[in-house]
Amino acid sequence: MTKELICISCPIGCHLEVTQKGDEITVRNNKCSRGEIYGKEELLAPKRVVTATCPVKSDLMLRIPVKTTEAIPVELINRLLEELYKREVSAPVRRGDIILENFMDSGIDVVSTKTLSG
């Protein structure tokens, strides 16, 4: 299997050609070693940090912004977003408070990115 990817390790943006044969993955067209690492990861298990908002009960604001503590596998993103859009948070909330713990056993939490006093 061969996939074309754009490396995002630096602004140059090398157009990588990543090929998987059995257990062996080869990365081509990369100008530096970071491209090789990126290409392999992106092919095997692409992950993204997700940011979103949850509804919040407060006079000051309607939505509280949140983020995953680490990048999560892309196949979990839509399920996570739907969960977050439904989850009503109540004030007070502090920046870093856990909103959703260990989502689908990924070991990844969702935390508030804003403080909202009572």
Binding site: L5, I6, I8, P11, I12, G13, R48
Partner: peptide, 12 residues
């Protein structure tokens, strides 16, 4: 925009 955003915001 940044290459990173082309990849993560459009290509994804």
């Amino acid at each position: 925009g940044l290459t990173r955003n082309i990849v993560q915001c459009l290509n994804d």
